[in-house]
């Protein structure tokens, strides 16, 4: 069992011992009588690409909503860079970048204006925002289209803008919820490659929620979430070893009982 307790941070602000990018410890959530997350505990180290693998309805988006404080976390503990999300939401959210499952760009505004808006939401002034917007758009290969409206972009390009936007405030933790859904193969590869590059170059911690098994690389950390419960957390070789299966797809099927491979394509 992964040890994910962390008692640091809030009590001694000047001498916080250490922190992973994200610590989720014993978190649960219900919608009415329906329990959608139950005693979920995961960690996302910095400099690691962590895949949150689960079928549709497994609870991935709910977990994201809790980590981003869209829903209130009433049981367990969530810490971002050591800061308790409930007690110090501002400090916790400062270094968190998010790409939501549904598109959240303003299609009437240009790429640059969307990025400026996001920069403002993080208290970044206009002059600094301009510099960072150019950097971020360069990272995702869209610097030459900064003055175009979002509505003129393809789905893959819009996703890349959302990634650029999530980088503006220089996060240490990046959450991406089904970021490649609806994209063609080329766009998927492009988005994945950008995010993996961020992990390697910037040492960012990434939590990548997906139901697509072919997005997992052998060096990734994997968290298997099924019906609101964590079934596995660890390395890919560890997953194969524990499940006794030859590949990730079979391992996932044996753990979750998914009968149809199309469910986890």
């Amino acid at each position: 069992m992964t040890t994910i307790l962390s008692k640091e941070a809030d009590g001694a602000a000047a001498h916080v011992p250490s922190a992973d990018a994200l610590i989720v410890n014993g978190v649960g959530h219900s919608f009415g009588d329906k329990r959608v997350l139950d005693n979920v505990s995961i960690t996302v180290p910095r400099g690691a690409f962590t895949v949150l693998l689960g079928l549709n309805g497994a609870g991935k988006s709910t977990l994201f909503a809790l980590v981003t404080r869209l829903y209130d976390n009433v049981s367990g503990e969530i810490r971002i860079l050591g800061h308790d999300l409930r007690r110090k939401p501002t400090a916790a959210l400062q270094r968190l970048g998010v790409v939501f499952q549904s598109r959240t760009l303003d299609s009437d505004l240009t790429l640059e204006q969307n990025l400026f808006y996001h920069a403002a939401l993080h208290g970044i002034r206009k002059a600094e925002a301009k510099t960072r917007a150019v950097e971020a758009l360069t990272t995702v290969g869209l610097a030459d289209r900064a003055h175009e409206k979002i509505r003129n972009l393809s789905g893959g390009q819009a996703r890349r803008v959302e990634i650029a936007r999530s980088l503006l405030h220089r996060p240490a933790l990046l959450l991406l919820d089904e970021a490649t859904v609806g994209l063609d193969i080329g766009s998927r590869e492009s988005v994945l490659s950008i995010v993996r590059g961020l992990v390697e170059r910037e040492g960012m911690g990434v939590l990548w929620a997906t139901h697509l098994i072919d997005e997992i690389a052998p060096t990734d950390r994997v968290v298997v979430l099924h019906k609101g419960r964590i079934l596995y957390t660890g390395s890919v070789p560890g997953l194969l070893e524990v499940s006794g299966q030859p590949n990730i797809r079979e391992a996932f099927r044996s753990m979750t009982g998914a009968k149809d491979t199309a469910e986890a394509a």
Partner: peptide, 19 residues
Amino acid sequence: MNVDTPMRSFEAEAPRKHG
């Protein structure tokens, strides 16, 4: 069915002050 991976520790970030 869980398997441990070594935990990495880093210096925690001091929160940025919003003036």
